[in-house]
């Protein structure tokens, strides 16, 4: 954003203060996430930078908190639970969400706004209300404090993300392709797998990743619905923040940030690929 040469000193000052303001907002967004990364290597059990750390002395840094995670059976156990719940919830959400998005993208669907409203509602209703309702209902049918109950709950919370991303991919979808395929003799199933699926795959995968991270980060529903046996990483973190705060939590947080970065990169690459596939301009 270069300034045109005719801008006066007042305009110039205004422009630079605008840039500084934006810089501060970006700092506000990103600094809290970045600051925990070096702190997780603190050799002392403190939550702040020690003098040694600021002087970059090597013995002020250590990986003891990471070793702590690996050696603590509770963290390992909850990591396993988190992965199991997130993977199954993602599978259910992705399959059901993709199929529904195919139906939603057709112009013939009756009561479309109402149906869409219902399908998106798990994303809109405050989590505390969803969690309370699920707690009452799942207790009645014996699904509370079980893995299947938690998986179903997380799956339904993830479906809106799949529906939204896949529907967005289908907006620019050229329906003459499916007609051409059917005209050439392929049945609906074959048309779906050979023609539609490869084109909407980026949307499906991003939706799935959204569903995955939703489940992987979710704590409120776990808080109400899961017993000790179904503890997940966020639940363990929650307990850690409330009860015995230790830098182990910062180490876990750092690992979670790395996972987020990996997922974000994947989704961004997929989005660009999808736009290229659909003939839109890159970026």
């Amino acid at each position: 954003m270069a300034l045109p040469p005719y801008v006066g000193p007042a305009g110039r000052a205004w422009h630079y203060s605008f840039l500084i303001f934006c810089g501060l907002v970006f700092l506000f967004l990103i600094a809290p996430i970045l600051v925990i990364i070096p702190l997780s290597f603190n050799a002392e059990p403190y939550f702040t930078f020690t003098e040694g750390m600021l002087a970059f002395e090597s013995d002020a840094y250590s990986t003891r908190w990471y070793a702590d995670i690996v050696n603590n059976p509770q963290w390992v156990f909850s990591a396993g639970n988190s992965v199991i719940v997130a993977v199954f919830a993602t599978l259910i959400a992705t399959v059901l969400g993709t199929v529904a998005a195919l139906g939603l993208s057709q112009a013939h669907l009756p009561y479309k706004p109402a149906v869409m409203g219902l399908l998106i509602s798990p994303m809109i209703v405050p989590l505390i209300i969803s969690a309370a309702g699920m707690f009452f209902f799942y207790s009645k049918i014996g699904l509370a404090q079980t893995m299947p109950g938690l998986i179903l709950a997380h799956a339904v919370l993830g479906t809106p993300f799949v529906v939204i991303t896949v529907t967005a991919t289908l907006v620019g979808f050229d329906h003459s392709l499916t007609r051409a395929s059917e005209n050439l003799g392929a049945g609906p199933t074959r048309t779906f797998f050979k023609i539609q699926m490869p084109l909407i795959l980026p949307g499906v995968v991003s939706g799935g990743l959204f569903a995955f991270i939703t489940s992987f980060d979710e704590v409120v529903v776990v808080f109400f619905l899961a017993g000790f046996e179904q503890r997940t990483i966020p639940r363990q973190m929650w307990a850690g923040i409330r009860e015995q705060i230790s830098p182990t939590i910062l180490a876990v947080a750092t690992i979670l940030v790395c996972i987020s970065i990996a997922l974000l990169t994947t989704v961004e690459l997929l989005r660009r690929r999808s736009e290229r596939l659909r003939g839109m301009s890159p970026g």
Binding site: I213, P234, A253, I261
Partner: peptide, 9 residues
Amino acid sequence: WTSLLVRTT
């Protein structure tokens, strides 16, 4: 994309 708990921490 970062966990809410991480950011609150």
